[in-house]
Design a protein around this nucleic acid. Structure first.
Length: 475
RNA sequence: CGAGGAGUAGCGCAGUUUGGUAGCGCGCUUGGUUCGGGACCAAGAGGUCGUGGGUUCAAAUCCCGUCUCCUCGACCA
């Protein structure tokens, strides 16, 4: 039973070889494979199940907030993209364009959507006529394409899956309020469903969405101290409404432009989960999004009653609403232990003759890698263990982020901070020149601005600080 | 686009310096013994050595071209 030296599926050590660790995890756990087109990924069933769980949980929250799902076309006429000046400038370098179809050249090229503000703006322009049509709040789950130069599975791919919500309101106040409440929805989702702490706040002008008045983001801290933009909400003012003629007749009889906003999260969340919770054994999945919350590993399967007991346990847990996998393949138990740990299954239940005799089940919790015993078939105790695991995972990640946010009063301190894998909290005067200087000096960008300004002076020029900003290296 | 690295079996690699029958580990197939932390035995399948040309009696190996991928940078909400 000695451990084999040449363990081909073993993943790299997260502490010493981070980029390789990430690649190993996404490939060897069969979350994804690389697609034939550079920068694309094939999401395999184990990875897609995580996405389905994210969708289910997110949809429930959208529904509770009153947002409905819809679907808009993949292809957008090129002329739509050029209607909003900043938008086209921001996205032009990374759009893929369809020039031929049906065996001939198209009169007008079509872009593969990099985001759907324009085509949805076009449709909303047709649908909105009266104040009675507002607010109009729809969401779509779809794929988008952005031709990036460097890519990494989940974190930045040429094609990715996301949800994009788009709303029109009659007033600026309502649209701005929705922008903030959707950010709050995302933050709660990150905490409750992904067990992941995030930093939320407004983005700087440099970092905002092309065509927006204001962009807000939530940033998650990865194992290597880099920041991952995990969700954004955008307040567009009337920019897109004017570009696409989204007008309504108000109660006072006047024709007015609507105020729009949009928000989105993507498969990047899966990358965030991997890099927030993963360890040197592989994935550690938050129970709410794990493809299965429990895997049952039978011990000594040929002994009488073992397989039957495992099936009975599976039914009991499933009846209690728990997602369960029974691994009754003929691999050795040790192989199964390692395999499912690598794949991040939250709880493993080992069930063998000794357990059955004693009326217990051996339970391994993935986040802390501890083994214990529970009464055989006690679904309530399994639920409690899963819930406790969520709390532990969130608390651990929060504590790490708290310890790795440092303050800086100078560029040198800022550089030291980001080099040490930290988020750096520092004052900023508000000038683009200083923001650019920070990037040049420390390869760090302004992730979000703190809700209140507590800094006295700008980390770069020393003038009075108008904002307190979290700087970090980012994916 | 700049700098560096790599292309040999499904995966990971050796072999190239010094040209001479295509190798290893894992995985896979079949049969058997196993099973409380990646089991073992036996037999077997699988490769135009990225690609085009050149040198040579002979090229994975030497020379020239070319393509692809990876890392770092640039770029990127």
């Amino acid at each position: 039973m000695a451990k084999k030296d040449d363990f081909v599926t073993k993943i790299a050590d997260i502490e010493t070889d981070f980029p390789q660790w990430y690649t190993d995890v996404v490939i060897k756990t069969k979350l994804v494979d690389y697609g034939p087109v550079k920068g694309t990924m094939v999401i395999r069933p184990y990875g897609y199940a995580i996405w389905e769980n994210i969708q289910r949980e997110m949809d429930a929250r959208f529904k509770a907030a009153g947002v409905e799902n819809a679907y808009f076309p993949l292809l957008i006429p090129m002329s739509f993209m050029t209607k909003e000046a900043e938008h086209v400038e921001g996205f032009a370098p990374e759009v893929a364009v369809v020039t031929h179809a049906g065996g001939g050249k198209l009169d007008e090229p079509l872009v593969v959507r990099p985001t759907s503000e324009t085509i949805i703006g076009h449709m909303y322009g047709k649908w909105v006529e009266s104040w009675r049509d507002l607010p109009l709040r729809e969401n779509q789950w779809c794929n988008v394409m952005r031709w990036e130069k460097t890519t990494r599975p989940f974190l930045r791919t040429s094609e990715f899956l996301w949800q994009e919500g788009h709303s029109v309101y009659a007033s600026a106040e309502e649209a701005e309020s929705e922008t903030l409440s959707m950010l709050a929805l995302y933050e709660a989702f990150a905490k409750d469903v992904l067990c992941m702490p995030v930093l939320c706040g407004r983005k700087t002008e440099k970092e905002k969405f092309a065509g927006a008045v204001a962009t807000y983001g939530m940033e998650a801290m990865m194992h290597d101290g880099k920041s991952l933009q995990s969700g954004t909400t955008h307040y567009m003012g009337q920019n897109f409404a004017k570009a696409f003629g989204v007008q309504f007749t108000d109660k006072d009889g006047a024709l007015k432009y609507g105020y729009t906003m949009s928000y989105g999260v993507s498969t990047r969340l899966i990358g965030a989960i991997i890099m927030t919770h993963g360890d040197s054994r592989g994935l550690v999945l938050p129970p709410p999004v794990a493809p299965f919350e429990v895997v049952i590993v039978p011990i000594a399967m040929k002994k009488e009653g073992v397989v039957e007991a495992c099936h009975a346990l599976k039914s009991t847990l499933e009846n209690a609403g728990i997602r369960v996998k029974l691994d009754d393949t003929d691999n050795s138990p040790g192989w199964k232990f390692n395999e499912w740990e690598m794949k991040g299954v939250p709880l493993r239940i080992e069930l063998g003759p000794r357990d059955i005799e004693a009326g217990t089940m051996t339970v391994f919790t993935r986040d802390n890698c501890e083994k214990g015993e529970l009464p055989l078939g006690d679904a309530g105790a399994v639920w409690a263990a899963l819930k406790a695991m969520c709390t532990r995972m969130y608390d651990r990640a929060s504590e790490r982020m708290r310890q790795r946010i440092v303050n800086a009063a100078s560029l040198e301190e800022l550089l030291t901070g980001v080099n040490g894998g930290n988020f750096v909290r520092a004052g900023w005067c508000g000038d683009r020149a200083c923001e650019d200087r920070v990037k040049e000096f420390a390869q760090a960008t302004a992730r979000v601005m703190d809700k209140t300004n507590t800094a006295a002076m700008c980390v770069c020029c020393g003038k009075e600080a108008k904002h307190t900003v979290f700087f970090a290296r980012a994916y």
